[in-house]
Computed example of a mutant assay.
Amino acid sequence: MPKMKSHTGMGKRVRVTGRGKLVKQQANRVHKLEVKSSRRKRRLAGTDPVSRADAKRVKKLLGR
């Protein structure tokens, strides 16, 4: 049986915390920042948990 390979693209987008939760960067923080207000940019600065609906699929892609 061949080894299970994790999805490298998903590995770059999602991180697993010490307790096993999945965390991702928030969207809309990459370009066109001049248009967005400072308040909006600050709000988007942190990480965001992966939704429960997607968590099962993401874990499978990560090989967990």
Rank of each mutant, 00 (worst) to 15 (best):
K41P: 11
P2V: 15
G63Q: 05
G46S: 06
G18V: 05
S38M: 15
V14I: 05
T17A: 12
R15P: 04
A27V: 01
M4F: 13
A45S: 09
G11M: 01
L22N: 11
V14Q: 10
R40M: 11
V23N: 03
A55P: 01
R13D: 05
K5W: 02
V23P: 00
A53P: 00
D48G: 00
A55Y: 09
R19V: 13
A45P: 00
R29N: 10
G46W: 04
R57V: 01
R64W: 15
R52W: 07
R15Q: 15
M10A: 15
R19Y: 07
V58K: 03
K56M: 07
V30D: 05
L62C: 07
K21Y: 15
S6F: 08
G20W: 11
T17V: 08
L61R: 11
V23W: 01
T8H: 04
K32S: 01
K56Y: 01
V23I: 12
V35C: 07
P49I: 06
V16W: 00
H7E: 00
S6E: 09
T47P: 00
V35A: 12
M4A: 15
A55C: 02
G46E: 06
R13A: 11
Q25G: 09
K36A: 11
R43Y: 15
K12P: 05
Q25R: 13
G63D: 05
H7G: 03
R43M: 04
K24F: 00
S51F: 08
V23K: 15
K60M: 07
K41L: 12
A55E: 10
T8I: 11
R43H: 14
V23R: 14
E34M: 11
D54L: 10
V16D: 01
A27P: 01
R29C: 13
R42W: 09
S51V: 06
V58S: 03
L44I: 09
T8Q: 13
R43N: 13
Q25F: 05
V50I: 00
E34A: 14
A53Y: 07
S51E: 02
R15A: 15
L22D: 09
K59M: 03
N28G: 06
V35E: 09
H31N: 04
V50Y: 02
K12F: 06
L61C: 10
R57C: 03
H7Y: 00
M10E: 12
A45T: 02
K12N: 05
L33P: 05
S38Y: 14
T47S: 13
K12A: 13
M4T: 13
R13T: 08
D48F: 01
D54R: 08
K36M: 08
V50D: 02
A55G: 05
V30I: 11
G18A: 02
Q25K: 13
R52D: 14
S51D: 05
P49E: 09
T8R: 12
K32L: 14
S37G: 05
